[in-house]
Structure formats: C-alpha cells, structure tokens
Design a protein around this nucleic acid. Structure first.
Lengths: 126, 126
DNA sequence: TTGACATGAAACCTTTTTGTATCATATTAA
DNA sequence: TTAATATGATACAAAAAGGTTTCATGTCAA
C-alpha cells in the first residue's frame, strides 16, 4: 500500500529552543554549563578551565548567552556569568515530548496492545 | 577575594551524547524526529515533508543515525527509519543533571537557606 | 528482461563555526 | 595619574555544515 503524503505537522514544537540546542551542540559549551552549574564565574575564571584563548571562550559564552542558557551581569570590570535554568528546562521539555518512548509502564502497555492486535489478526486469518 | 584556578571537573558528564547533541542542533533534524515519533518512515516518506532535495534529507538522516537517534532497517529496496529512544533519553538524562535548578521544592529549599544565611549575617553585623 | 523506483554516493559550492592574533576600552589599585 | 587587569571587538584562516547536481546501484513489477 502506497502511503499518501503526510501533510499535518506531528505536534507543534516550541520553536524557542533553537538557540539553546545550537549552543548545546558544542562540548566546550556543555562543559561550561556544568562549571556554571557549580558556581557563577567571571570570564577569566571560565577561561582557566580550558586550553584555548580568552577570545574563543568569550565566543562560546556569547553563544550560550544568545541561547539564553546563561546570563551575564557586569560587576566593575568583571562580567559574572550565571547559569539560566529556564532555557535548559525548555530543552528538557522538548525532549520530554518523547518520553512516552522510554516510560516503561507505557512501553509495556504499547507492547501489550500490539501483541493483542497481532493475536486478533492471527485469529481472523485462520 | 581572588578565586584560585578551579581544577576539578564538576561532575563527570556522559561523553556519549556528543553525536546526539550535534544531531539535535538542526531544526530539520528535530522535525524529522517528531515525524518519526509518530510512525516509522521510508526515506521517501520523510522527504515528502520537506522542501529540499532527497540527498539533503538523506544527509540529515545519516547524521541522526550517527547520533544513534534513529535506526535504519532495509526492507526490499526501501529503508525504514525508526526513532531510537535510547539516545534521546541519554540527552534527557544529561539535561536532568541540571534539574535541581528547576525543581521547585529544591529551589524553595535553597532560597530558604540563602535567606537564613542572609538573616544570620544581618544579625551579626548589627 | 526491462523500465521505473528507492536509495547511495561523490563532487562541488556557500555559509557557519571555531579557533587565532591583535588592538581598543574601561576599571582598579598603587 | 599610571600600570596592570578584565573584557570587547575586529580581521583572518581552516574546517565543518548544509545544500545542490549528477550518476551509480539494487529491487520490484510487468
């Protein structure tokens, strides 16, 4: 049976998360988030953890900020970088869109239904 | 007070997720995942939802497969693309690393502690 | 067998990403 | 005020990403 073109969008996804997903794609940035999860840090302090130039780290921080994953608060000549949980949560929420797949109870339920359907078919075709 | 260089890694993150995070960074690929969350599809069926060449969609599917977000099963001349929840779950798990930040109960608890600390300080400085 | 169909893969182009080096600016402390 | 510090910003280069076009291969159906 040939499937007709499916036109409906499955479920409206939050489009807001693009910047966050983009930011999360880089391992250095994920690492920065883990560090900031422990404590707020100046750019210099973040830099101390990485073997790359200050400018490179700064760029990563900028991308994290664009993704709303961190906020930056000036204090004197320093900039305090702080983890922003909200954006992280919206990414988590997007993923939870799929958690029916890894919810064991539901998975078992689905398997049961599938098995039942299969049984019915077998019975009918006898 | 000048902070000394912090040398310890905050918490050992699962390094496995890089391919998955990379794959999730692109909106087309996230959209594909949503479609595959509804039903398995051949490449052609996936293509029908996007305004780009088959080759482009194929590349996206390859990257999704590299990130273990989907699996591909050949059937005759077709390839059935199926969502693989495991990799999605590992990404979700990585994010849950932060969920102490958005767990309301914990947040309130933290606020309470901070408030208490502040109160103590105020009292002392009187 | 043969033609249509579903896919695979390579070559190529443009834009983005990720890093560098360098210079400018603002703030602090002596 | 002046030198050191913390950061901002720009120009540049190499690599990766995201597309396209084109051609090859394997499978189905008549």
């Amino acid at each position: 049976m040939k499937q007709p073109t499916i036109q409906s969008t499955p479920t409206p996804p939050p489009v807001v998360v693009q910047g966050a997903f983009r930011a999360l794609a880089d391992p250095t940035r994920r690492s920065i988030l883990l560090f900031l999860g422990e404590q707020d840090m100046t750019i210099g302090e973040v830099c101390a953890h990485f073997d790359m130039t200050r400018a490179a780290v700064k760029k990563h921080l900028t991308i994290l900020e664009e993704g709303a994953l961190i906020s930056v608060q000036p204090r004197g000549r320093e900039r305090i970088n702080r983890l922003e949980p909200a954006a992280l949560k919206s990414v988590a929420d997007w993923l939870n869109h799929f958690n029916r797949f890894w919810d064991e109870r539901l998975a078992q339920l689905q398997h049961a239904v599938v098995a039942e359907e299969a049984a019915k078919k077998t019975k009918r075709s006898k």
